[in-house]
Structures are given as structure tokens and as C-alpha cells.
Design a protein around this nucleic acid. Structure first.
Lengths: 240, 240
DNA sequence: GACATCTGTAACATTTCTGTCACTAAAGCT
DNA sequence: AGCTTTAGTGACAGAAATGTTACAGATGTC
């Protein structure tokens, strides 16, 4: 997995069972995050206000104030509403998904889950919810991608492509001039926790090239034996 | 499903029931993996230490030492901690979330599962456990090799060559001024246990020189009776 | 529900790479 | 110079990687 180098974020883990908290904390710290822990909603709330964690992992089942209730409360307060929440639900509680969504959770993880999955989804949520800065439009040679309006234009003309192609292009444009393997692209664009054949990447590359049109499709270059690369340096006899 | 040729990875299957092991082994071998089998923790441990498998498929339920216990043991030992583990759990055992997390499994598969799913998830785990480091470009006399973009440029102009030539050049550039035998090159560039005629190296040297062009091909020097060498110092005997 | 869109996979087509061989050229040796 | 050994070269068939197309299921919309 290709790691992002960013100032370590802090994650608040809210669960009434200490062993679970510890396991999760260990996994997150291994992945380079700082962790905070709380066993109940009261403590959790103090910590949220006090430490402003970057994300909250919230167990659905908790004595007294339930996870849902706590989430709802956080989302109501403008001060804390922006903090993304990932709900931890156990098998069989999946039906409560709707309630959870209403409460304002940003993602769900169903127990049991692997540490990798946890970290992967956590990253995804963090990436998505990063407020400003990262969402700046990227423009290269007249090809402009705007993450906010979700639009791609070539010299002003709008190009249309599917969501996956959009994310793929977005990733490429923000990581130009570097070759990525299909596996890395799956991790970065699809999200680490999917089980998809690597050849699927090829198909989406094809769709992306098609969507870019003749003028820009050459920016997506094949690196034979490795993967693909987004590069403004066009070479006819391109190869590895 | 046609699979990659990569130096086939070895997977250790640990399950006390022989039929299950065989089914799994067959599926994995079909997908191009080498398989090792063990019916209990003791055997499994010997194999792990001895053969260093790339991944372990571990049944949750096992007589004597349970899968969880075994996993925990492996993760405790620095020597084996890096080997990813996929747990096989049966229906109804799903609740053992905490134990499994603590044990350090990298993924879960719930029986019954399709061979297809197994292979897919296995690939995903393997993919993630083999990170791609960020390497520094190497530059010598205007010849630059950049592992990140996977490019070779001569004074800015891109040179094109095949994957093997790329690796060969990469090896040479990071081990300049030293002669290597064909055997050593096969080991280093082709990777350990390949059975390839040594003269094949000559052919790739030829291709590499061709790819480098007139200006740089003299950097690849023949050491008669021994092998080849990458050197910036042009030998006198060549000046005739 | 009919319709459109998107996704992942499989199957087939095409391109590129690989390892060998046969042969030539050069170097070493007596 | 002859003879022997070693390296350079071009051609080629099979293997491998990538490109392309078609399709079935999933999802969302009206």
C-alpha cells in the first residue's frame, strides 16, 4: 500500500469494552495515528470538545447513551458536526443502517473486521472529509478537473465519464509523472478493501482514455511490465 | 483465469481436515501459487520457520492449539510477524471478533467460500503486504534512471527499452564500476531460481546497449572471460 | 416496471517481450 | 597464421502483457 505522508491524525475510539478499544488502538497506532479512548458518551464528549479529534470510531451498542444518540448529538452541534464518524456495528445490527445514516455517520464497519479493513476505510473517510486545500481544481495543459463540481473540462468543453474514471483521473492528476502498479491503483482509487481482479484496472484505463478523447488520452501512459502513469511528457515510442 | 507469472508465491494452508486442505490447495495451484500444507500447529510452525511462506491460510478451529493461538504466536515473533494471515472461520464463529483482531489476522473468510473469492482476497492481502518503496533516481553523465516514473532519459530525451533491460540497467547503475558474471546477473536481475541459459544475458546486454544509443552504449563494457561491467571510465583498449 | 448507467469479468485480438539458436566476429594462444 | 574460445548479432516462435469488446448483474431514476 502506498502511504500518504501526513501529520498524524488523532482518532477517538468510543466503546464500552476496554479490550476492543485496545485492539483497535493498537492497530491504528501501528498505522501511524494517534488514538484517544472513551468508554462512554460523557467522556467521549469531553474529549471531542477538548481535543478535537480528526475522526471518531463509535460503537453502536453502548450503555446509557447509545452510539446513535451520541452521533446525532455531535452532528447537531456546529462545533463538532464536521468531525467524521465511523460506526462499528455487530453482525445482525446491519438493519439499523438507515437509522445510523440519519444520525450522521460517515461510514460503517461491521464486526468482525480486519485491522487492514479498518485502516483502509478510515483513510477513505478522512480523505473524503478533509475540508479545504485538497479539493482545489487541478489543471494540466488545458485539461481541468474540479473535485468540487465533479467536472472535467478540456479547453472548456465538458468531458463525461463514470465515477470510477473520475476518481482514477483525479488520482493520476494529483500524482503525475509517477508509475503505479495495478495493485496500487486498486488500493488508492478503489479503496484498500475491495477484492477485484487487477485486469479490471485495464478496462477502466481504457474507459478513461476513451473519455479523455484523442487529444488527452496520450497522457495516460502504459508502463509495460509495471502499470500506468499520468504524464505530460508524451513519447510516441513510449515504453518502460 | 490466466494468472501472473511472478515468481510464484507460496501459501501455507493450515487445517486439520485433509479434504479441505486439498480443495484449497487445488484452487491455489490452479491460480499459480505453490502450496504447503499442515494439519496442526506444530507442523505448521516448522514449515513457517523453514520455508517462509508468503501467506498463511489458517483455520480457526483446530484441535490442540487453536488457530487464534497459533496466529498470536506467529505475530509475537518478529521473524514471522510480517507474514500475513487469513483466517478461515465457519458460520456461527463470526462473533469471535475480538479474539481474531487481537490475534492479528489480516483478513477473514467465512466458510463456505468460493475458490474465486479465496484467490481474490488472497491476492488483495498479498498485494498490500508488498509495498513499493520510493526510490531515488540515479543519474550518471546525463543518463538518468528514475524508478518512480519508470523512465530512462538521456539528457532529457526518453529512451525506450524492455522491462528486463530496465532492471538490468538499474542494477548496473546502482553497482557501477564492478564486473559481474552472467550467473550473478541472472541471480540479481532475473531473480534467484530461474533456469535460463547464460548466453541469454548476452542477448539482453545487446538489447540494452541498443536501447542506450551510441552515446551511452559504451558504458556497458565487456569483461572478457568474466562478464560485464557498467563503468563511466572508458577503457583504453576500446579506443583503437 | 422500463430505462439508463455503471461495474467487474471473461473472451478474444493485438502488441511486445523472452529465451534460444545459428551464425559471424573478435580475442587469445601456440 | 591456424586453431580455440568467447562475445556480438539477427531471426524467430512461443509466452506474456496489454488493448478491446461484449455481456450480465447491480443500481438508480422516472
Amino acid at each position: 500500500m502506498v502511504e500518504e505522508t501526513m501529520s498524524s491524525r488523532s482518532i477517538l475510539i468510543v466503546d464500552d469494552e476496554a479490550p476492543i478499544r485496545e485492539v483497535i488502538a493498537a492497530a491504528l497506532e501501528m498505522a501511524g495515528y494517534r488514538t484517544l479512548e472513551a468508554s462512554n458518551a460523557q467522556d467521549a464528549h469531553s474529549i471531542v470538545v477538548d481535543q478535537k479529534p480528526d475522526l471518531i470510531l463509535l460503537d453502536w451498542m453502548m450503555p446509557q447513551v447509545s452510539g446513535v444518540e451520541f452521533a446525532r448529538r455531535l452532528k447537531r452541534d456546529p462545533l463538532t458536526a464536521e468531525i467524521p464518524i465511523i460506526m462499528l456495528t455487530a453482525k445482525g445490527e446491519e438493519d439499523h443502517k438507515i437509522t445510523g445514516l440519519e444520525a450522521g455517520a460517515d461510514d460503517y464497519i461491521t464486526k468482525p473486521f480486519s485491522p487492514r479493513e479498518l485502516v483502509a476505510r478510515l483513510k477513505a473517510v478522512l480523505r473524503r472529509s478533509t475540508p479545504a486545500g485538497i479539493d482545489e481544481p487541478i489543471e494540466i495543459n488545458g485539461l481541468k478537473l474540479d473535485p468540487n463540481s465533479h467536472r472535467i473540462t478540456a479547453h472548456g468543453d465538458e468531458l463525461s465519464m463514470g465515477p470510477t474514471e473520475f476518481r482514477l483521473l483525479q488520482f493520476f492528476m494529483s500524482h503525475a509523472e509517477r508509475a503505479y502498479t495495478r495493485g496500487q491503483l486498486l488500493d488508492q482509487v478503489w479503496g484498500g478493501n475491495v477484492y477485484v481482479d487487477e485486469r479490471t484496472v485495464d478496462v477502466h484505463i481504457r474507459r478513461l482514455r476513451k473519455g479523455l478523447g484523442d487529444e488527452f488520452k496520450s497522457l495516460i501512459q502504459t508502463v509495460r511490465g509495471t502499470g500506468y502513469r499520468f504524464s505530460t511528457k508524451v513519447t510516441e515510442t513510449d515504453n518502460s
